[in-house]
Design a protein around this nucleic acid. Sequence first.
DNA 1: ACCTGAACACCGTTCAAGT
DNA 2: ACCTGAACACCGTTCAAGT
Lengths: 210, 210
Amino acid sequence: MVSNSYHHGDLKNALIKVGVELLTKEGISGLSLRKVAKKAGVSHSAPYAHFSDKQALIAAISTEGHTQIYEKIIAIIEKYPDDPLRQLVETACAYLNFGMDEPDLFRITFSGVVEQEKDYPALVEITQKNFSLIKDIVIRCREIGIFKQEPDDLLAQGLWSAIHGVVSLVQQGQVSSSVLNQYTPRDLIFFTLNQMTQIEIDPQDLKRND
Amino acid sequence: MVSNSYHHGDLKNALIKVGVELLTKEGISGLSLRKVAKKAGVSHSAPYAHFSDKQALIAAISTEGHTQIYEKIIAIIEKYPDDPLRQLVETACAYLNFGMDEPDLFRITFSGVVEQEKDYPALVEITQKNFSLIKDIVIRCREIGIFKQEPDDLLAQGLWSAIHGVVSLVQQGQVSSSVLNQYTPRDLIFFTLNQMTQIEIDPQDLKRND
DNA sequence: ACCTGAACACCGTTCAAGT
DNA sequence: ACCTGAACACCGTTCAAGT
């Protein structure tokens, strides 16, 4: 509907968009280059003009997922500019929500579906930008006494790993049912944040937004 | 070589074994039912007598991966019967080693490649047994003051999630290069254990075995 | 430069048939 | 009960050809 025969000017981005749609609709196993091409209204070989192979499209979709998280974190930082603890908590919750709301996009983005990440500069760049944002939040948190003095990199990496672990297991259904009966995924996030920090974080204090 | 025409009595286990071999040799993308069948010396439709579909074989391989970790943890507990902290540390390192030594088997086992875990009772059972082992270790650790008083389930789940997060990111190459230049994966594990516990764990104390 | 259509090798899965 | 072989629909990828 955007154009008629030889497609719009930007098939590349159209393929990424259609790819994400197909992914959320049919899951990772339903994501094929041929279906994406058909859904975009081009022949099954047209995508090869823009992506060297299927992995390259998956890498582009992963880049899209990282970008979505990046924009969410930026928005959180701007919303609570003087409250680094809040930034930390909201970022962790945003990560959890991403895993719960868009499980397949989350998997492609954060669960190593892309095999040779280093081959995709745009992907490497956005992952570095995301880590940088988290490191900034951690630094500001440490300045107000939330962490003991540890190297920033290690703190940020440890924190992100722990949150990533929780969300991954929740999203894969690998959380013990005895735990799931008593605690919500949100509880697990707060438990982890409390273990990783030197202060007590009360979920009740933070309930007045999504 | 085991037999001649109509194969040995246990094609099912032969297929699992060959599947693991093929997995470590060619990776997840190289694991196909047809290749497994050929490698086992049967026609491409023979596996369907034992596995309803490809997912069922993958679930069996995942079960094998969980069983390998289970046996390692059992061995660790028997090796250090009176040292729960050591049990904890060694188990975490075993998890890391599994991720580093057999990345593809690790992925199938712990990274949600199996889509409907609940459909495979043997898989559900071994995951419960593993969680139970970890919970036992955590309980014994708490009794000697390593953790503050928290519910066992939550402690065990939180700890396992954090370790899982570290190993997953390491194994997927998603650890920031600035961190990798300064710290080994083992450092990250010890950092995480130190954050999650109430005592200081010194890696030096534990260096005299693999 | 961008896209098409035929072609190839490889999948997962089914099913009638064989022992 | 266990396995085979043909068949089907679907892949990813390549390439000569068209505008």
